[in-house]
Structure formats: structure tokens, C-alpha cells
């Protein structure tokens, strides 16, 4: 019989290389961004300075980008969850009917950039919906059509994110529903005198949300850092975080770099905080 391999004190060369790539490189990038934000790294580094950190109080760009991203992420993920729950809990038999089982996979084929382009062609003031409204005599010209893309509230971005996310959540909730044998629980709760609404609100809904929590948080983070869709469907102001960072770092004025490094450092730190929450959630759901 072979003896059980005992873990060695030092990581294997493979793991060391892996650590260097996946931890070393991003952390080195973070350190570079931090040093850049205090004037110690970067093309125009001229010695330690705290002025970029002090300027944070007056520069509202990063704060607005964070708030706008937060709003878009909360709205998109919230609407997607609501739609998916509605479909799984109220239209379960319909979801099993042709062609829905295959149809729900279709949005997973679409890159975010393509969805952004499609919605621009559909919802802009000269888009297909506006043309249909014009032909039907509902509007007199492009300006009569409501602003649905590149709007201040980010409606176009939210619509695109929902279109991409809610089918995935529906498939996920449906898989959890079957895996957790919720149909049997439904029969049981109805036998015990609960109404279908009580089953949905008190049993199925909380269970689905709790079990899907890590994936939902992951989707929230992905929406928070979305780039392709806001780049096409967003306005120059307010911008979402990724677009804001990329725009600031790609400006020709190198003096802007330290402030951009600072923004990148702070955003990365915030997202890493969310990862910590995600890992805790994952451990909790694993225990249950």
C-alpha cells in the first residue's frame, strides 16, 4: 500500500510560480499604484508628496464614478434577481416548455460588447424602436424619442446588464430549486396549511437567495467593474469605475497619472474587501 503523501513545508515550484503570477503580479501592480500616488513611481516621479491624497477631498470624479457604479450594479443585479425569482417561483411549468429550456442559454452566447452595440442600435434616438415609433406616428422626429442610452441615470447600461444577467440567474435558481427538492417542500408546506405565496416568500425565496449568494455577489462585483457596456452606452459624465480609470490612465497628460494610480489603488482595495465578504459567504454556505 502506498503511504499518504505528507504536505511539505515549502510550496512546490509549480505553486511558487503560480503565487508569483496570480498574487505577486497584481500586488506588485497595487504597490506600484500606491507608490505612484505618492510621487515615488511613474514616469514623472519627483519624490514623496501627499498632494494627490489631499486632493481626493476636492476631486469628486472618483466618488461620483463609485456611486454611479454602485447604483448601476444594485439596480441591474436587483432587477435580474427579481425577474429570475419571478420566473422560477411563478412560472416553473412554463420554463419547462419548449423552447424556453434552450432559449435561456442564448444570452450566455453574447459578449457584453455585442449586447452594448445591439442595444445602442435598438434604443438610441435614431435606433430601431425610434424608427418604428416614427413610422407609427408616435413621434415627429428623433428628439421626440426618450433618451434610453447614454442617459444620466444609466438606463441603457442597466438594461444591457439585466439582459445578460437575468437568464443566467434563472438557470441558476432553477438548478438550485431542483437540487434542493423545493417542489417536495412546496407540497409539504401546502399540506401543512401554508398558502403558495407564503411558501414563495418564507421558504423558497430565502433558500434560493442564500444558496446563490456567492454567485450573486460575484455578479454584483462583475457589474461594478463592467467596462464594455458602459463604454458604449454610458456618458462621459458620470462614468462607471472601469471606464473612469481607463480614461484617466490613457490621457496624454502624464501629470494626471498619479491621481489615476491613486484611483486604481482605492478601487482595487474596495473590491478586495468585497472578495473577503465573498469568501466568508462561501464558507458559510459550505457549512450549511
Amino acid at each position: 500500500m502506498l503511504s499518504k503523501a505528507r504536505p511539505s513545508r515549502l510550496p512546490s515550484p509549480l505553486l511558487s510560480l503560480y503565487g508569483l503570477l496570480v498574487v505577486g503580479l497584481p500586488l506588485a501592480g497595487l504597490a506600484y499604484a500606491l507608490l505612484g500616488s505618492v510621487g515615488l513611481a511613474g514616469p514623472l516621479a519627483a519624490g514623496f508628496t501627499g498632494r494627490y491624497w489631499q486632493a481626493l477631498g476636492t476631486d469628486t470624479g472618483l466618488l461620483y464614478a463609485a456611486l454611479f457604479s454602485g447604483w448601476v450594479a444594485v439596480a441591474s443585479v436587483g432587477i435580474s434577481i427579481a425577474l429570475a425569482l419571478l420566473l422560477v417561483l411563478r412560472a416553473q411549468p412554463t420554463l419547462r416548455r419548449w423552447p424556453l429550456p434552450g432559449l435561456l442559454y442564448v444570452p450566455l452566447l453574447l459578449p457584453a460588447l455585442v449586447v452594448g452595440f445591439y442595444l445602442f442600435q435598438l434604443l438610441s434616438r435614431t435606433g430601431w424602436l425610434a424608427r418604428l415609433c416614427f413610422q407609427l406616428g408616435l413621434i415627429q422626429g428623433p428628439e421626440g424619442f426618450p433618451e434610453l442610452v447614454q442617459d444620466a441615470a444609466g438606463l441603457g447600461i442597466i438594461g444591457a446588464q439585466v439582459l445578460l444577467t437575468f437568464p443566467f440567474f434563472t438557470l441558476l435558481f432553477r438548478a438550485i430549486y431542483q437540487e434542493s427538492r423545493l417542489e417536495e417542500y412546496r407540497q409539504l408546506t401546502l399540506t401543512l396549511g401554508a398558502s403558495p405565496g407564503q411558501f414563495r416568500r418564507r421558504v423558497a425565496g430565502p433558500l434560493l437567495l442564500r444558496r446563490a449568494a456567492p454567485t450573486l455577489l460575484l455578479s454584483f462585483m462583475a457589474t461594478l467593474g463592467a467596462y464594455d457596456i458602459p463604454l458604449l452606452l454610458g456618458r462621459p459624465y458620470p462614468q462607471m469605475l472601469s471606464v473612469y480609470l481607463a480614461t484617466r490612465l490613457q490621457r496624454f497628460d502624464l501629470r494626471e497619472l498619479p491621481a489615476a494610480y491613486l484611483a486604481g489603488f482605492l478601487v482595487a482595495l474596495g473590491l478586495l474587501g468585497l472578495v473577503a465578504v465573498l469568501l466568508r459567504l462561501r464558507r458559510q454556505t459550505a457549512v450549511r
Binding site: P26, G29, A41, G225, Y227, L241, L245, A246, A268
Partner: peptide, 13 residues
């Protein structure tokens, strides 16, 4: 966990 664009920005130097 980091958005791809932010990761690209961090490792670009």
C-alpha cells in the same frame, strides 16, 4: 475578482 480593465491597468507598467 478585480475587473479585467483594472487588472490590466495595474500590471501595465
Amino acid at each position: 475578482a478585480l475587473p479585467p480593465v483594472l487588472l490590466a491597468v495595474l500590471i501595465q507598467p
